[in-house]
Amino acid sequence: MKRLHVLYFAILREQRGLNEEHVQSAAATPAALYAELVSRHRFSLPQDRVRVVVNESFADWDSAISDGDSIVFIPPVAGG
């Protein structure tokens, strides 16, 4: 099991009811972790509308994640 630091923003923050949390997970990739969190918290956004940031850099959904990583799922942006 890994201990991951997950931060939430915008609609995901509201749907989770938290700004951040530590999650214990066996997920090997951000995609697996997102699927786990979607089923646990009923997030409305499908993975194909979200991007992922690992340790403050945009990452691939199938990249490897490690114990202690900081992970942020990025809902569709709307700056400007």
């Binding site: 923003f9 609609i11 409305s44 942006v77 709307a78 700056g79």
Partner: peptide, 29 residues
């Protein structure tokens, strides 16, 4: 610059409507 900022930078906008409802732009049905 403005086109790329709008498309890529992780900034989100929540609108509050006259109806009293609110919503995250681009995130909700």
């Amino acid at each position: 610059i403005i086109d790329e900022v709008k498309a890529r930078v992780p900034i989100w906008k929540k609108e509050h409507y006259a109806s009293g409802n609110s919503g995250w732009v681009n995130c909700e049905a």
